[in-house]
Amino acid sequence: MKKKVNITIDGKSISATPDDNIVEVAKANGVYIPTLCFYPDMGKCLGTCRVCTVKWKRHHVAACTLKVEEGMELTVQSDELKDLRKALVELLFVEGNHFCPGCEKSGDCKLQALGYELQMTVPRFHYRFNNRIIEYNSKKILFEHNRCILCKRCTHKFKDSKGRRVFFFKGKGCHLEVEMVTELVDQLNEEQVDHLVELCPVGALLKKGKGFDRPYGERKYDKTPVGQTTETHPKPSTKKHKGLL
């Protein structure tokens, strides 16, 4: 058992185990750090969305990528950080084409829930109106690229039963996009498809023929704010190449 060390978050002393993830340590001690691409027990963090940004040694750092070290002094809640997180969420909205009223994921969408939580009304940035496609090629999954936030969950945290990645990144910079291997997606079973759709934090990956199947009030974020909701995803399989990671 590792020896505990002391860190401070917003001036509050916390005892934690070295190498533990800051987001989870903070949560265990009653400090909420907003996240988007992160989910509990995900293994190596993705660090793509930066919504969990905190201040450490005068630098802005994604908390999910930070490990506990002796004597760490972190700032989590400040006006500057709140505005920064809000700006990051706004950037995700303007970079894609998100129309929540017509989206199947509305009420279950983590991006939407964060928008509400951070009190985003109108983005301060110009919409990019990117011309993106909707992929209908798969028999099982509809890929709505307009809503993809490039979080890496599908590309890095999902594999099929044979351990193969099903989604890849393609392109660079502002041309970066996720590519779906249709042949592999069509071989997924029902359970895997459900998990894949759940894994996507926005409405980019949808199960075909399914949508709006639960009433208002029964969706994930209808009654429970995103900060009080715990995402549950299947833990990495103990057997090699056994489905989801």
């Binding site: 009223p101 017509g102 199947e104 909707i134 209908y136 509809l142 949808l206 075909k208 023929g209 399914k210 949508g211 709006f212």
Partner: peptide, 14 residues
């Protein structure tokens, strides 16, 4: 046009 069919009742009512 170009949207999935199950979205129609939710989108078009707008």
């Amino acid at each position: 046009q170009g949207r999935p069919y199950w979205e129609a009742p939710v989108v078009v009512q707008r």
